[in-house]
Amino acid sequence: CHSECLGNCSQPDDPTKCVACRNFYLDGRCVETCPPPYYHFQDWRCVNFSFCQDLHHKCKNSRRQGCHQYVIHNNKCIPECPSGYTMNSSNLLCTPCLGPCPKVCHLLEGEKTIDSVTSAQELRGCTVINGSLIINIRGGNNLAAELEANLGLIEEISGYLKIRRSYALVSLSFFRKLRLIRGETLEIGNYSFYALDNQNLRQLWDWSKHNLTITQGKLFFHYNPKLCLSEIHKMEEVSGTKGRQERNDIALKTNGDQASCENELLKFSYIRTSFDKILLRWEPYWPPDFRDLLGFMLFYKEAPYQNVTEFDGQDACGSNSWTVVDIDPPLRSNDPKSQNHPGWLMRGLKPWTQYAIFVKTLVTFSDERRTYGAKSDIIYVQTDATNPSVPLDPISVSNSSSQIILKWKPPSDPNGNITHYLVFWERQAEDSELFELDYCLKGLKLPSRTWSPPFESEDSQKHNQSEYEDSAGECCSCPKTDSQILKELEESSFRKTFEDYLHNVVFVPRKT
């Protein structure tokens, strides 16, 4: 048989008469490798580009789960590009990614509803959504962080984005990388972005840091009482949809009607710091009717980097990364020049730590249904340095008659930039024990000054392991946590139920 035959053949030295091919099969003959313009397919066939392209389009058009959109890589027609490569849609070739590779997620039936953290986790790592997304989240724990972890990498949506009755959302900033909504599939009414009845939605994105392009379709905003109209108009300008909307697409009466839409800028007039305090004062603000001013709200939190936005980490279910302080308005003076500047002394802060701070007014709604208010920009203030805590785990070892090696770990709280350490030492008198000992005694162990690591005695271990207080009263049991108490109650309830079950099964009433 021919060298490319495997198993047997019907005619000697003829690659077209093989029972099976050793390498690849091409047009009725066995070959060692697939010549151009053919590609290896499933490690035994040679196919042309049209064959591989037909497989790709067949799966793409069917949208069946589990099928493969075949691509070409290293002269092979394979189910998908290997790690580190992405497909070129024009020629199906796998090309190296520039940075992290995109991950295209194809949605069944063309859309997916995100109504819980669990459903959001199914899209973790996706960068391109081939379909439409509907966000409908009523509640949950730590929602802002969970949504950002699972949806934060999405850069492109081919269909539309719909935010509907998501009472738990305060902001859409968890879509931190969303840059493009194509609108290839539109919501009824030709809408590519749809926001309806979101009672706590206050911000779409921080438009000073976020760009969003909507290729096709219109915007729809109705019944978002805490979303200011200025935020919607800003989205029109940034996304390129200005002029597409009709009169009733953006409701003037049901958007922002319960919001404090600040239209003035508060400026800080005085800032002073110490290692654990920050004193702030800002310019006074009074609405047209000074009785509408209820006070100020001061927001602050630790910020290692200057990239904080107002609604980071917030949701309507209680999660809030900001510390909020309510401040009463100052006494009002008739003389504008003698107006008191409101302020606040922030206490209990960490030394040498940068804080993000902003302040906003708290006002009631005027009778004319106009909203007044003022808010400052987010500023960054760093507390002063102070003395560091003591170095940890000092170790001293003498390696000769004239040297001592000293080692330690950095302090747990540096409280500033540590530039150097101060080492103090003092000579001590020799131990009298060394002169009084009889060095001729056998088995004498000389006193040693070398360091030995501390260890816990058996008594201390027994005390720590004991669940009861000892007789001397030195140790006591740790208080039980809520989960331990709940577990004990469940076990007790189970024992009672099981005992009742045994009584009912074992003891049967005697027939009379």
Rank of each mutant, 00 (worst) to 15 (best):
V104P: 04
V104M: 06
V104L: 08
V104Y: 06
V104S: 12
V104E: 09
C105G: 00
L107Q: 05
L107N: 09
E109F: 02
G110W: 04
T113V: 10
T113N: 06
T118G: 15
S119I: 14
A120Q: 03
Q121P: 05
C126V: 01
C126H: 00
N130L: 13
N130G: 04
G131D: 01
L133R: 00
I134S: 12
I134F: 10
I135G: 00
I135M: 06
R138Q: 15
G140I: 11
N142V: 07
A144F: 15
E146L: 04
L147C: 03
E148G: 06
A149V: 14
N150Y: 13
N150P: 05
N150M: 07
L153P: 07
L153V: 13
E156P: 00
E156R: 02
I157L: 05
Y160K: 13
Y160T: 09
Y160R: 07
L161E: 00
K162P: 00
I163M: 11
R164T: 07
S166H: 02
A168S: 01
A168L: 00
S171W: 02
L172D: 00
F174G: 02
F174A: 09
F174R: 01
R176S: 13
R176P: 07
K177S: 08
R179K: 13
I181R: 00
G183A: 05
G183R: 02
G183F: 03
T185L: 09
L186A: 07
I188E: 08
N190R: 09
N190G: 11
F193T: 02
L196R: 09
D197S: 02
Q199I: 09
N200Y: 07
N200M: 07
D206E: 13
S208Y: 08
H210A: 06
L212S: 03
L212M: 06
T215Q: 10
K218C: 13
K218N: 02
L219N: 04
Y223N: 07
N224T: 05
P225W: 04
K226I: 07
L227V: 08
L227E: 00
C228Y: 04
C228A: 04
S230P: 15
E236C: 13
E236T: 13
E237F: 08
K242T: 06
R244V: 06
E246F: 11
R247H: 13
D249L: 15
L252I: 10
K253Q: 12
K253W: 14
K253Y: 10
N255E: 03
N255M: 08
N255G: 04
G256A: 06
G256R: 05
D257G: 05
A259P: 14
E262W: 05
E264L: 10
L265E: 06
L266A: 01
Y270R: 05
S274G: 04
S274I: 02
F275M: 12
L279E: 15
L279R: 11
L280E: 00
W282V: 03
P284T: 06
Y285S: 09
W286N: 09
W286K: 08
D289H: 06
D292Q: 14
L294E: 07
F296R: 00
L298M: 13
L298S: 01
F299S: 02
Y300G: 01
Y300Q: 05
E302H: 13
A303W: 07
P304V: 06
Q306L: 11
Q306V: 09
D315T: 05
C317M: 10
C317W: 13
G318A: 03
S319T: 06
S321F: 10
W322Q: 03
W322S: 01
T323A: 13
V325A: 14
P330R: 11
L331Y: 05
L331H: 09
Q339P: 08
L345C: 05
L345G: 05
M346W: 01
R347M: 06
R347W: 12
P351Q: 06
W352A: 12
T353P: 00
Y355M: 02
A356R: 02
I357N: 00
I357A: 08
F358D: 01
F358C: 01
K360D: 02
K360Y: 02
V363H: 10
T364N: 15
S366P: 02
D367V: 15
R370M: 03
T371H: 10
S376D: 00
D384R: 06
A385M: 09
P388I: 05
P388L: 14
V390H: 15
L392W: 05
P394E: 04
P394L: 12
N399H: 06
N399A: 12
S401N: 15
S402A: 15
L406V: 15
K407R: 09
W408H: 00
P410T: 13
P411W: 01
